[in-house]
Amino acid sequence: MMPTPLNEREITAPVALTTAYGTLNHDALGWSRTPLHDTSGIPGRGHWGRNKRWEYWNVMTVSHIIAFTISCVDYMALHEVWVLDRATGEEIGTTTISPGGRSATLPPSLGDGPARARTRRISLDVDESFDGTRLRGTTPRVSFDMLATRPPGHESLGVVVPWRRGDEISRFQYTVKDVARPVAGTVTVDGTPHDVPPGSWAVLDHGRGRWPYRVHWNWAAGSGLVDGRVIGLQLGAKWTDGSGATENALLVDGHLSKISEELVWDYDPQAFLTPWHVHGTSADLTFTPFYDKRSRTDAVVIASRTDQLFGVWSGWVTDDTGARVRVDGIEGFAEEVLNRW
């Protein structure tokens, strides 16, 4: 299989994701290096059941991995908090599913207000501040309070992915993938506090869109320091294939280089913990996993199969000047997800 080059349009001015009729605004197609899309038209009338809205955060420290989700998919809200003790391998997960969307508060567009989840077992708060994003959560065994800072000039990848049926685009997704956010704070497990020290990194997946019922995707990210520079890696596949868009990008000291190429992903779905190879003309990357977060859900209407591998990246990516940038040693994840939702 060969990588596929694409011609993608950079968006540099604010634009609405949807029209007044709730359909995709074709002027919104493209990618941006800061959040410029107004997504207040999601959910919108006449499309009930296909609207998906979420905020997912992942934080990697030397001692723990912390992840949480606030989401609403019209007919239900799903919230999760998950923590891994990297020394012992113990994982603590709490998931709640509730009918409708009353337990979820999600801003119309990124940065336009708080995100919150409120159930008997999970409380989550995401609040923007002048210096970053405050992340707080509580479950029966876990609590955390962290600040993901936003350094001056820090860029993130926003992209609209369309799914076509002939000439019609009835399904589409706007995503912001924000990698290499320095984070600090505290995570408390069973009453014992643990610092989130310097050198910890946060990653955001912000999503608003209308999805097909079945979807298959790869997503990968990495953050860290290489030769004194802050390196962020953002990669995706399968769900974007054939759409004319990719969610591939490299971040170096806050500057984003767009990778307009459908990269090739080589890995063994029967042995996820063996090394992965993601490559093309603009990248040659190896991902070596050390932990598989396996999730399986079968709730009749909703079913999902997720293997999220945490590990270490090595290799290179070409930036927008044509230089090869090494990513050796940065940590992150790569996942395969199959959803029926």
Results as ranks from 00 to 15, higher is better:
Leu124Gly: 04
Leu110Ala: 07
Pro108Val: 02
Lys52Gly: 03
Asp74Thr: 11
Pro108Met: 03
Ala77Gly: 15
Ile122Cys: 05
Thr105Pro: 01
Arg118Asn: 12
Ala67Glu: 11
Leu106Ala: 02
Ala87Pro: 01
Ile66His: 05
Ser98Leu: 07
Thr94Asn: 03
Glu90Asn: 11
Trp57Ala: 02
Pro114Cys: 01
Leu135His: 04
Ala87Phe: 11
Asp127Val: 15
Phe68Val: 02
Glu90Met: 11
Glu90Lys: 09
Arg134Thr: 08
Arg121Trp: 06
Arg102Asn: 12
Lys52Ile: 07
Asp127Tyr: 09
Asp112Ser: 10
Trp54Asp: 00
Ser109Ile: 07
Glu80Thr: 14
Phe130Met: 10
Arg86Pro: 04
Met60Pro: 01
Ser123Pro: 00
Thr105Asn: 04
Val62Asp: 15
Ile122Gly: 05
Leu110Ser: 02
Gly132Tyr: 08
Ile97Glu: 06
Val126Asp: 01
Arg120Ile: 08
Arg118Ile: 12
Asp131Asn: 08
Ile70Val: 15
Leu78Ser: 09
Thr94Leu: 01
Leu78Tyr: 09
Ile70Ser: 11
Glu128Cys: 02
Asp131His: 06
Asp131Cys: 08
Arg136Leu: 08
Asp131Lys: 05
Met60Thr: 14
Gly89Leu: 03
Gly93Cys: 09
Gly113Phe: 00
Asp112Thr: 07
Thr96Leu: 03
Glu90Tyr: 05
Thr105Ala: 06
Trp82Cys: 00
Val62Thr: 12
Ala104Arg: 05
Ile92His: 13
Arg120Glu: 13
Arg118Asp: 10
Thr119Ile: 02
Val126Trp: 01
Arg136Tyr: 03
Val81Pro: 06
